[in-house]
């Protein structure tokens, strides 16, 4: 197979696709619980200490890392396509890719850093 002329798009599409799954199924749970249900008293608030204790578990951190990373790449890809097509910026594709995926990488690194420094 002449894979040479094939697009490298699969990698960003893969991140986008998996990110879409996380953004659709998992992110809303966090927003619902920590953004709405706990502050509004619709569900018993686990409080700071319990949430903090949960964060001590490496598995929680790993989960948050995966969630945040994929969601960032999902957003980056969506942003790139929206800007290039809806705003007619196809000619700036390389710059857009650089800014969007670069942003996702910066966000991911920031997430790793935050997850690493929380003690």
């Amino acid at each position: 197979m002449s894979s040479a002329k094939r697009s490298n798009e699969p990698i960003v599409w893969f991140l986008f696709g998996v990110g879409g799954f996380f953004a659709a199924y998992f992110l809303p749970i966090h927003i619902m619980l920590y953004g709405l249900a706990f502050p509004l008293g619709l569900a018993p608030d686990p409080g700071y200490d319990k949430t903090y204790a949960l964060l001590q578990n490496p598995l929680t951190r790993l989960y948050l890392f995966v969630l945040i990373m994929f969601c960032f790449f999902h957003a980056a890809h969506r942003m790139r396509l929206t800007l290039s097509d809806i705003l007619n910026m196809r000619h700036l594709n390389t710059i857009l890719a650089f800014v969007c995926y670069g942003g996702a990488i910066v966000g991911t690194v920031a997430a790793i850093w935050m997850l690493a420094v929380v003690h």
Binding site: M1, S3, R6, P10, G17
Partner: peptide, 15 residues
Amino acid sequence: TKEWFKSFLLPRGKN
């Protein structure tokens, strides 16, 4: 995408 990952992991293709 599956094919892309395959050719990436097993780059012995028939180019």
